[in-house]
C-alpha cells in the first residue's frame, strides 16, 4: 500500500525538479511563476494529512509570533506568564513537527517501526503533558 502511494510522489518530485533545472538554465523565468509553481505542486502532491499538519504549524507560528511581539512591545511583567504562554506554542510546534516527520510518507524508510497510530498517540500524550505544565506554570 505504502509503496504505491509513494510512487506517484517520487515521480512528482522528479518531474518538479526537471522544470526547475531547465528554468535555471534558461535564466529568465518570472519569480511569480516559480512561487506559483511551487505552491500548485505543494497543493497537488502533498497528502491531505501533511497539509493539515502544515496549516496547524503555521497557525502556531502566528500565535507564537504575536505573543513574542506583544512581549517586546509591552514588557514581560508576569514573566512566568510569558514563558508559559510562549513555550506552550513553541512546544506544541515542536511536537507537531515530530508528528509530521513520523507520519510523512516520504520518511517511511526512516520510521519503519513506528506506525502512524503510534506516532499520533505519542503526539497526543506529549501535548497533554505540555498543556498541563503550561497551565500549572502560569498559575
Amino acid at each position: 500500500m505504502a509503496p504505491k502511494s509513494r510512487h506517484p510522489e517520487k515521480s512528482a518530485t522528479a518531474s518538479s525538479s526537471t522544470p526547475a533545472k531547465s528554468s535555471s538554465k534558461g535564466g529568465h523565468v518570472d519569480a511569480h511563476e516559480i512561487v506559483h509553481g511551487v505552491w500548485s505542486k505543494y497543493v497537488d502532491k502533498t497528502p491531505q494529512r501533511v497539509k493539515l499538519l502544515d496549516s496547524f504549524m503555521a497557525f502556531l507560528v502566528v500565535v507564537g509570533a504575536l505573543q513574542f511581539i506583544y512581549c517586546c512591545l509591552v514588557g514581560n511583567f508576569p514573566f512566568n506568564a510569558f514563558l508559559s504562554g510562549f513555550s506552550a506554542t513553541v512546544g506544541q510546534f515542536v511536537l507537531t513537527a515530530s508528528l509530521r516527520m513520523q507520519t510523512n510518507p516520504e520518511n517511511k524508510a526512516e520510521f519503519e517501526s513506528i506506525s502512524h497510530e503510534r506516532a499520533f498517540a505519542d503526539f497526543v500524550f506529549g501535548s497533554l503533558i505540555l498543556h498541563f505544565f503550561c497551565i500549572n506554570f502560569i498559575n
Binding site: 504575536l66 505573543q67 509591552v74 511583567f77 506568564a81 508559559s84 497551565i135 502560569i138
Partner: peptide
C-alpha cells in the same frame, strides 16, 4: 494580573 491575559490567551488558543 491583567498583564498576563495575553499569554493566558496564547495558551488557550494553542
Amino acid at each position: 494580573i491583567s498583564g498576563a491575559w495575553v499569554w493566558i490567551g496564547g495558551i488557550w488558543v494553542t
